[in-house]
């Protein structure tokens, strides 16, 4: 059975029409299933775990990047709790104007269009990264100010200008340098640092303020700012970030990796 998990924000009147259209499309495609509404649940992890144990065919996140992140965490934790490799794929139905960069990157269209992607059931096994006790599929971001990066105890990186740090598994932004080619299937994370170099220097060479490293594990320390995972969830530091798990995900033809 397909399990549709509606985030709490979609359970408002504003999204009644959108949900009705989605549900009609899902019915037309013969993909009906059980609906779980997050607002009424005490424990999403437990609900997802139970549905997987009952043999769910797909777990579908209906909402935004935040919803996708919650469901990914629930699926991975279910696997850890039961010491099993979970093959149940994750599907996504983006709803509304909330941030939906993960779905976009995976080639999943908005609302009803996402139904067609679910129906095509194109499954890719993608890496899942971990930051502290939380999991994420796309990027971890933090301000460079006051941040120390330690790379597998071999070396440390100090950033001398203000800017932004991205640890990328699946790139949700299109402004990365050409040479950075994050691949969510290679078991490697890309560390991308963009600093605010002088305008003159940036004018002469647009790549002048960019740094790039490929790695498997790093520790981020910043006593002031948290790390933002999947464009939505904040995690405090120090946090070790690594990539050591994977998840089946239903993707669209237009995916950007």
């Amino acid at each position: 059975m397909h399990i549709y998990i509606y985030d709490d924000y979609v359970n408002t009147k504003k999204y009644d029409n959108a949900l009705a259209r989605i549900e009609t499309r899902i019915t037309d495609l013969g993909l009906n299933g059980k609906i779980i509404r997050l607002g009424l649940l005490k424990n999403i992890n437990e609900a997802v775990e139970n549905e997987i144990k009952r043999g769910a065919k797909t777990i579908v996140a209906v909402g935004s990047d935040r919803t996708v992140n919650k469901i990914i965490n629930a699926i991975i934790i279910a696997g850890i709790n039961n010491q099993m490799k979970i093959e149940t794929p994750l599907g996504i139905i983006p709803v509304g104007n909330e941030s939906n960069t993960i779905a976009e990157t995976l080639g999943v269209g908005q609302e009803e269009e996402a139904g067609d992607v679910l129906s095509a059931r194109r499954i890719e096994k993608l890496d899942i990264a971990q930051a502290g006790h939380s999991f994420f599929i796309s990027q971890a971001q933090i301000a460079s100010q006051g941040t120390t990066l330690e790379i597998e105890k071999d070396y440390s990186i100090e950033i001398m200008e203000p800017g932004e740090i991205d640890v990328i598994n699946l790139s949700i932004f299109s402004n990365l340098p050409e040479k950075a080619k994050p691949n969510p299937k290679d078991g490697i994370l890309e560390l991308y640092i963009k600093t605010k170099a002088g305008r003159k220097l940036t004018k002469l060479n647009p790549a002048a303020n960019q740094s790039l490293f490929s790695l498997k594990k790093l520790t981020i320390i910043n006593p002031k700012y948290p790390i933002i995972l999947d464009n939505s969830i904040a995690v405090s530091t120090p946090a070790e970030i690594s990539v050591n798990r994977s998840l089946n995900v239903i993707v669209g033809k237009e995916r950007r990796f």
Binding site: I157, E158, I159, M160, G163, T195, N209, Q210, F213
Partner: peptide
């Protein structure tokens, strides 16, 4: 790429 504002 170790950029100009980076110390390794």
């Amino acid at each position: 790429i170790i950029g100009p504002s980076i110390k390794v």
